[in-house]
Design a protein around this nucleic acid. Structure first.
Length: 145
DNA sequence: GCCAACGTTGGC
DNA sequence: GCCAACGTTGGC
């Protein structure tokens, strides 16, 4: 099981909108970047991810779970682009801001800091635990449905 | 809204 | 295969 981070601009697709979809989940479509796509191709059902608000908010606001493995992106006919489906799992009790992540030496190598523009990123287990801790969330309490 | 950083494209 | 030009992302 792996960990990931999904970036979204809240005025395009927000955490609230993701939660409204419930367990049905939603396609994480519109990704037009090879590295981000390759990350999605590696995802398995049950993998967990952070939901991060970019541009506005600049914070990790929730936990999501991969609920469908990589398939063609329905928003394009271009065969190069695949995407996964994700569903909301729970809120981050206290959103973890980019500022806080940058200020934490343990997270200095996190993709969020080093690969600022990558919209779908891998997260290391140690980073996962640390961000959960900062957000007031016990990683062990995250239950996939 | 600006601009730096980065990815992609296309001419050579 | 290099690299300049261009477009996009995302923090500020």
């Amino acid at each position: 099981m792996k960990y990931w981070l999904f970036k979204s601009e809240p005025f395009k697709w927000s955490w609230e909108m993701q939660k409204e979809k419930g367990d049905a989940g939603e396609e994480w479509d519109g990704i037009r970047n090879y590295q981000a796509r390759n990350n999605m191709r590696e995802m398995k059902v049950g993998d967990l991810g952070f939901f991060y608000h970019s541009n506005e908010g600049l914070e990790v606001v929730g936990i999501v779970e991969v609920c469908a493995e990589s398939h063609p992106d329905s928003t394009t006919d271009d065969e190069r682009w695949d995407c996964v489906d994700i569903k909301a799992v729970c809120d981050m009790p206290e959103p973890v801001t980019l500022k806080a992540v940058k200020a934490n030496p343990k997270l200095a190598d996190m993709s969020l800091v080093t690969s600022m523009r990558l919209s779908v990123q891998p997260v290391k287990p140690a980073e996962w635990k640390e961000v959960c801790r900062m957000g007031g969330l016990d990683p062990k309490s995250i239950k996939s449905a």
